[in-house]
Amino acid sequence: MKKLGQLTILILIAAIVWGYFKPHSDQVAMSIEKLVLTGSSTVAPLVAEIGKRFESLHPNVRVDVQTGGSSRGVTDTRTGLANIGMISRALKKNETDLLSFTIALDGISIIINQSNPVSSLSKQQIIDIYTGKIINWHDVGGNNAPITVVNKAEGRSTLELFLHHFELTNTQVKPHVVIGDNQQGIKTVSGNPNAIAYVSIGAGEYEAEHNIPIKLLPLDGIGASVSNVHNRSFPLSRPLNLITSKQPGGIAKTFIEFARSVQVNDLIEAQYFVPIAN
């Protein structure tokens, strides 16, 4: 009996090891159409969700989403390694050979505690606060209290957009707290009257409207709101695009149309991006 148990365990381990190392056998069923998307790690989680829903509607399609950054998306689309590329920015001037399709917008807002009397900060003030040149709210017209700077963990798209907009590198930022997701940032700021953080605008606006004591600071005089991201006037935002090398046809066309339709708005909002279809 004991031997039998040991045998079972051995077989189990063997199965796990084999499953781990075995080659992928995707080519087995020839009737299945495969759609490969590569690119930005910001867009990839969203597209993966959209892909799942797309697969359930089109059972003969497999959507394969791979990350690697926006530049990989551009390269793979040009070389044909990917059917569709994903980029978390607009196309550059030297990329006009490609076509882009915006599926959602990404915006972030600076948040502070509601009890903080500061009502706006200039771009330079935000840079000085995040690089540790201004360390007291008194210097920007607030109470005499030390500023708690909240930054995001490496790899997050909000961090990338924030650094890009303020032309900083992450080594220059001198944080007191580092957070992972938006909720953690909102909890930190709502519990600390002297904290400053930045979060996805969708998450920030939702919580501020639901009596969480935070306020969203305007930037360059433009209010931080989903609608201002939607009409593209808010400066701290960017489009999330799908790109193709030529006018898409067949299953790629269907997918892009699906990703831009109202059918995926709930998926976009779940990731705190701003949908464009309405």
Partner: peptide, 17 residues
């Protein structure tokens, strides 16, 4: 800890966490 303890400690010395 985040919603109760950290704000208490922040009163002693920020940032609390």
């Amino acid at each position: 800890g985040l919603t109760t303890l950290a704000p208490l400690i922040a009163q002693l010395h920020p940032p609390g966490v």
